[in-house]
Design a protein around this nucleic acid. Structure first.
Lengths: 218, 218
DNA sequence: CCGCGGATCAACCGTTCGGTTGATTGGGCA
DNA sequence: TGCCCAATCAACCGAACGGTTGATCCGCGG
């Protein structure tokens, strides 16, 4: 009996039902619990642990409407309780953005799949994760490769800071005051940012940065 | 036999499986077909129609990764084939923002639900839609109410359209071309938008509009 | 050690944006 | 019918932005 015990984490009942139905069709995979956000997921994990029914794989959405988000939860799961090896976390989300993927990987996720993946691919990923291997969706893998091969378009930390202020609607002067630098410097940074993002004005920069999840919106 | 025949439209296999499983639990509701995008949905509709097995309700996601999007599909479904009353379209999506809701309603959607809604609420919506009634998620209804109660700060449909383009980083001239109006008109709209949002420049307008969910952030 | 790149600043200039005033049209409502 | 408002356009002007050139300082790595 090599049953893989899975914890589902997603704030959408519809998606949970879909994953449950989908995984039910697979031999050797069993959904043992569900949670609507990261906090509930941690609670379930510790509950199941004390019951002596450990979880083999956590299958989790990255963006949760309310409560603890996926990245934070991944970190906390990986930090885990001493003595018990934390279960692999497989991220299953809608978007394939650089920032999301990097954040997930950084937090310790062992896989990153897209929700539009065919069932078989998701099953593969769960099995791989349970075996301690890394499972990346082809699109995601391609994106990571692209980043490594071509770091030209990466913004520096200072530039990211500028873009964040930019997105709040601040003028050059306001940003200059905020960062204790001159307006000239702000403009220089902006020019570099435009160049790296392939745009030619601040609003387009915000659009691209938001879309690429260089900054987070809302 | 009052069976409600449903067509599912969503580009995520996981979500389709979830809705299928969820609706299977309900008496009187039957999923008769599925489609991955708007184009496939139209094809299914006409196929089922010629087979003499009409669809009672279309349950559709608003944003489809590829192919025809939900708003366009809703419009085409409502345009329909002459002689046959088009089925009600129930939108089921992740985001609740003014722009999406207005676009969906304008295209002829008869309901707007959020994916994080509990199963019972979704069932209610399907039944209501089949009965020719309008079904709005509480959050959505509240948003529309807010718009009606407090029209001072409410943007007109045209202004919302402007803000959407604004957020993509377009210049006044580009927006003018896009909307087939003069740059002067664009500026007039922007001034009204700034005034209603309580800001004094475009980037701040985007920030506020995003925060108030007038437009989708993502 | 020297080069490279990031961060900082200055001066200049053309373009775009922001704000104002004023005007017309058409739809909805009293 | 007459009024209000949204939508459309024009002209104008000051302020802010966008782009360029050129410069200094500093830390990292070959």
């Amino acid at each position: 009996m090599t049953n893989i015990r899975v914890l589902l984490v997603d704030d959408h009942p519809v998606v949970r039902a879909g994953l449950r139905a989908m995984l039910a069709d697979f031999e050797g995979v069993q959904v043992v619990a569900e949670a609507a956000d990261g906090g509930a997921a941690l609670a379930e994990l510790s509950k199941l642990h004390t019951l002596g029914e450990p979880v083999d794989v956590v299958l989790m959405d990255l963006q949760m409407g309310s409560g603890m988000d996926g990245v934070t939860a991944t970190g906390k799961i990986k930090a885990g309780e001493a003595g018990t090896p934390p279960p692999p976390v497989l991220i299953l989300t809608t978007y394939d953005n650089d920032a999301d993927i990097l954040a997930a990987v950084e937090a310790g996720a062992s896989g990153y799949m897209l929700k539009d993946a065919p069932p078989e691919q998701i099953r593969q990923a769960v099995v791989s994760a349970a075996a301690g291997q890394t499972a990346l969706a082809p699109e995601v893998a391609a994106r990571l490769m692209g980043r490594i091969r071509n770091p030209v378009h990466a913004l520096s930390a200072r530039e990211v800071q500028l873009v964040e202020l930019l997105a709040t609607g601040m003028s050059n002067r306001a940003m200059a005051r905020e960062l204790f630098i001159s307006e000239a410097t702000v403009k220089t940074h902006l020019v570099h940012i435009y160049s790296k993002l392939g745009v030619d004005n601040r609003t387009a920069a915000i659009a691209v940065a938001t879309q690429r999840r260089i900054i987070r919106s809302q």
